[in-house]
Amino acid sequence: MINFNYETDFKLVNPSLRAEWISNVINEEDCKEGEINYIFCSDDYLHKINVEFLNHDTLTDIISFDYSVGKKLQGDIYISIDRVKENATLYKVDFKDELARVMVHGVLHCCGYKDKSEKEVEVMRSKEDYYLAKLS
């Protein structure tokens, strides 16, 4: 089950479409859908989590906590709407497109993809682009 939670005034437009899209990503990655919680929040909210749980004193657009067991995906995906807005402006893309990229990025982490090395980043970007094309 894909759940959307809000710790900010932001609300997803057409959440059922987004949930179906994420479910399709999970299925296509040959994983099973458990409970995936998206938590949309502010920079301050996510910064506190970043410091408390990861010991990183920086702003970020997303933090994924992966609780998956085998191929059954479970996790909490925190997304800073403030960061997504700023990154959309910085990269000159539409907010909804940047938000979709961050959302799929989080679930791809739960599917086992990493983004620490250049090669991992390349694979992650390729997967993001592939699934973003399917959202249109």
Rank of each mutant, 00 (worst) to 15 (best):
L73P: 01
C110Q: 12
E120S: 04
N87I: 07
I62C: 09
T60P: 02
C110D: 09
K85T: 11
T60I: 00
K71S: 13
L73N: 03
S117H: 03
V25K: 04
V104R: 08
E118L: 13
G75K: 05
E35T: 11
D115W: 11
F65L: 05
D76W: 01
S23C: 10
K11Q: 06
N50F: 05
F53W: 10
F65Y: 05
I77P: 01
S126M: 09
S80K: 00
R83D: 11
D97N: 12
N50Q: 10
G34D: 02
K96C: 10
K71V: 14
D82K: 04
S117F: 01
V84D: 01
Y67T: 13
N3A: 14
M124C: 11
Y6T: 02
E86Q: 12
S80T: 00
F4K: 03
V102F: 12
F40I: 01
N50S: 14
R83W: 09
S23Y: 09
C110I: 15
V69N: 07
R83S: 14
V93N: 08
D30F: 06
Y130P: 00
L90A: 13
V102G: 00
D115N: 13
G75V: 03
Y131W: 06
S16W: 08
S42H: 12
P15T: 08
R83M: 09
L99E: 10
K92M: 14
S136V: 15
Y67H: 13
K96T: 15
Y130R: 04
K92W: 02
M1N: 08
L132Y: 00
A88I: 02
G75E: 07
L90F: 15
L54Q: 04
S64C: 14
D115I: 07
D97C: 01
D129M: 08
F10A: 08
E86S: 12
N37M: 03
H105I: 01
L17T: 10
L17R: 12
